[in-house]
Simulated scan of single mutants.
Amino acid sequence: MTTTHNTSVRPEVALARVEANGRTQWAVRRGDEYSPLGMTLSELLRLPPADARRTVEEATGGGLRPATVLSPVDPGQEVWAAGVTYLRSRDGRIEESTDGTPYDRVYEAERPELFFKSTGARVIGPGGQVGVRADSAWNVPEPELGIVLDSGGGLFGYVPGNDVSSRSIEGENLLYLPQAKVYTAACALGPEVVPAWLARAPFAISLEVRRDGELRFGGTASTEQLARRLDDLANWLYSCLDFPDGVIMLTGTGIVPEADFTLLAGDEVAVDIAGVGRLENGVDLVGRDILAGADRKGGQDE
């Protein structure tokens, strides 16, 4: 277990989706002051980059008093993810798998591993509960830098993310990747989106998992360790997909817990990205184990 330190300094300016004045709306936060953005993130990401920046910079005056900070994504937007972008991630995937060859090959390949992660409506926000599958014995958080891309594939901003995953399900068979990655409460983002022109890469990333108040696992990484450029990942994602409302893309993890660690219901997880924000979530058990007690593939006894 690695000791971690809280590297968070709250960004001076960020975009937040909030409940305020009885409705959900987007705001620009400057310090402790929230100003209405006047549009959704989807609408903002449809604008030319210069207009989007001007819209953010001209949102001033304050006046909002948020009751709740929500996940920083519109319900109709999508979250995608890249895998095996760090050497540690490749090694971790090889450790969990019955055949590690594909992970070795994709780490070296020109084409990256890209996969769908979540709809915006399913994303868990700051303070919410992420999920671990009831039918998985080995579950891990994956702290990741999320990039917010506009409708043309340009980089608009950054957001902390947690790509919660079942290592036992994916390790059993590569064809089970969607089940290992896409399920109820498997994706968390937040607390805010930091505009790219106000953030400076590379970013230090840290993970803390606490159990009964004690640090159970901690680790650190840096986006300097990424084996792929962020613009290259964006280019591949947009090469044969259109995102008229923009998209959030998780860029992979460089922090992989050891094989003797699994995330449990009741744990508390913190993903900290220096200069971008700190995402904190509890953990719940989700779903049901339909194979429990079954002795054949049909899942029921005769």
Score class of each variant (00 low, 15 high):
V269N: 04
L41Q: 12
W138A: 11
A81G: 14
E268F: 10
A221Y: 05
G254M: 06
L175E: 11
G154C: 01
S165K: 06
Q225I: 01
G63L: 08
V283K: 09
D245P: 01
V18D: 05
W26R: 10
E95G: 06
E144F: 10
A27I: 08
L177D: 00
L15V: 05
G252I: 00
D301N: 13
D212H: 14
R30K: 10
G171Y: 07
V193G: 03
D104P: 00
D163N: 09
T253Y: 05
T220D: 13
A227P: 05
S42N: 05
L215H: 03
G293Y: 10
T119C: 02
R53E: 12
D104T: 08
N173D: 13
S136H: 09
E192V: 12
E108N: 07
I147G: 02
Y103T: 05
R216F: 03
V79K: 07
E224M: 07
L207T: 02
F243N: 03
E33L: 14
S35D: 09
G287Y: 13
G152Y: 01
E268T: 12
S168Q: 09
R17G: 04
A274H: 13
G282T: 13
L233C: 07
A109P: 01
T40E: 15
L87R: 11
I94T: 05
C187R: 04
V9D: 14
R53A: 12
E95L: 07
G120P: 04
G125N: 05
D32M: 12
S165F: 14
I290R: 11
V28E: 05
R167W: 14
I290H: 10
E268H: 15
R216W: 11
I124S: 10
R88Y: 09
S136K: 09
G157T: 08
E214N: 07
T223C: 04
V56E: 12
E95P: 02
C240A: 15
R10G: 10
G298Q: 11
L47T: 01
A20S: 09
I205Q: 07
P195A: 06
A109V: 02
G153I: 06
D301F: 15
T223A: 04
G154L: 07
A14K: 04
D260C: 03
R10D: 14
I94C: 01
Y183T: 01
F261R: 07
P191G: 13
P143E: 06
D135V: 01
R210G: 02
R54I: 08
M39R: 14
E258P: 03
S165A: 10
D245S: 02
R46C: 03
F115P: 03
A201Y: 04
A109S: 12
A50W: 13
V79W: 12
Y158A: 01
R111A: 11
G76Q: 14
